[in-house]
Design a protein around this nucleic acid. Structure first.
Lengths: 215, 215
DNA sequence: TAGATTGTTAATCGATTAACAATC
DNA sequence: TAGATTGTTAATCGATTAACAATC
């Protein structure tokens, strides 16, 4: 039996794609039809070879001397990133961070829709934030199951995160995007993507430090 | 002249450290004095060897048979991540996302303080969000210079991002944490850390997909 | 002591960079 | 055609994983 081609995608590549996309949108807005990997790389401070490798890995093809067709490339990235499809999410925790995520325009623009919010606080029950209704936490598992939601966002304090995760898993999510600092215990079949904004900030800081004190 | 030891830190390591920290805090709360790399790894679904390597790279030492001293390890991570120091930031764009970042409790807990917000909208002028005052955009460069701010957060729409970045650089920031999707053009000495939340979401999605269709 | 666990050295793996032939 | 740019194959680099000796 032939092995599935094992569609290999690398996480660094995925992280760079939004940059390429922004760059291409910019070019498209100026009516540019074709763009070279060198030009893209120049805008983003990257190696042109890396750009070509990334694009090749997602199935884009360019033409020697000409470069890559802008419209075509936008379409390929959009397809690969799944920005055409619509994916529904739910969010637990509608405090500051949760409310911001509910209103974050990047999600709908990229095909992600938060269909419901959940919060422990009874004051928020029935309230609508950015057009999304908030329900009591007890209803979460049931709603996840009924709507076949696959991904849940956790934006509750660290102390409550494990319990919330358990309820999400009971409902049937397969992936959790965890904005709390808690280290979640989940069954192997469930995937947790940890998001720690302070880590990003520290990386930036350390890079500044490196700049200041070169070896 | 001796080379500076070229303190090598790897970005993946930095991304994992908050997880270790959370795990250690949990252990500390239970009164556990020492913990093995295997235990930490088990909680976070990682390889114990990787945990040891990470800890070694930031200068932590354990003892055979015993493991790592919890309190000591917490201190080493805190020191390495710079969570003890206080670092001041400013933010441009006080809309949904900006306001959320201004209220994000993870920052003060980790020694980051947003000292001022800036927004184009005159309605917001003088308004205080989460205790942080908002100023008109025109005052940004001057305030950055006066307070010697080194890092600026950009949470404005993509279209306005470049102009805002230029003003930050005029003021003298050395690092920009860019939450907009715009590909910023900056001088070589300025470092941009791009944050694209939808990229994280796509990575989670792709991992779910991989789970479903194993080769 | 015996066994568990660290610390270190080597092997593997994957991502980035380089070299260069193919081609429009 | 000549030159620029892609696509591909090889080399390098860094991070992860493995093996094992040191040690409490």
């Amino acid at each position: 039996m032939a092995l599935t081609p094992d569609r290999r995608f690398s996480i660094p590549t995925i992280r760079r794609l939004p940059g390429y996309y922004a760059c291409l949108e910019h070019a498209a807005a100026q009516g540019i039809a074709a763009i070279s990997s060198t030009t893209i790389a120049g805008h983003l401070n990257l190696d042109p070879i890396m750009v070509r490798k990334d694009l090749e890995s997602i199935g884009a093809a360019g033409r020697p001397k000409i470069g890559f067709n802008v419209a075509e490339l936008l379409a390929v990235i959009k397809e690969f990133m799944g920005w055409g499809r619509l994916d529904e999410l739910i969010i637990a925790g509608c405090g500051d961070l949760g409310a911001a995520l509910m209103g974050y325009k990047g999600f709908p623009r990229r095909g992600f829709r938060i269909v419901a919010g959940f919060d422990r606080d009874p004051v928020l029950e029935g309230v609508t934030i950015h057009g999304i209704q908030i329900f009591p936490m007890e209803k979460m598992a049931n709603l996840i199951a009924r709507l076949h939601i696959e991904i849940g966002l956790i934006a509750v304090p660290a102390k409550a995160a494990q319990q919330v995760a358990d309820q999400m898993i009971t409902g049937g999510v397969r992936g959790i995007w965890n904005f709390s600092s808690a280290a979640l215990k989940v069954p192997a079949r469930v995937i947790v993507q940890q998001e720690d904004l302070t880590a990003s900030l520290v990386i930036l800081q350390k890079n500044l430090l490196k700049e200041t004190v070169p070896s």
